[in-house]
Amino acid sequence: MAGSFAIVEEPIDVGGLVSAAQRPDCGAVSTFVGTTRIDESDEASVEYLEYEAYRPMADRKLEEIGAEIEERWDARHVSIVHRIGRVDPGEASVAIVVASPRRGPAFEASRYAIERIKEVVPIWKREVWSDGYVWVGSQVGTRS
């Protein structure tokens, strides 16, 4: 299976990932892009997200998700790229691209990949609000 798995510190080139996945034996390329959303509450709002990863375990877990997809679906190309560090509103924190001969497996596999990332890949995000920060999932931080 072709593709790539990476954790990067710079903006993700989503277009490049999609182009790389297009191939003559596949009629479907499914792309999922997770982006930073501005949440708001009362007087405060999210200014940006900051991600950190436990490497190289996180890199290896991304590759394992690729292997799981290969076992379950006819995916000919899978790329999963997760960004760490500061990610500003609207920017991509994660991109998943799956090419398959038909659309069903492509959709299913890309959905599977994002759900697995949220279960097993040792990456954490911190929401930096205008009035403090909070670690998502742990509710530890400085927001009052």
């Binding site: 990863a53 436990y54 994660v94 949220k118 040792p122 990456i123 742990s138």
Partner: peptide, 10 residues
């Protein structure tokens, strides 16, 4: 040994 809070990637 790594101490890992609930992961929150994506």
């Amino acid at each position: 040994v790594a101490v890992l809070p609930p992961v929150s990637g994506g």
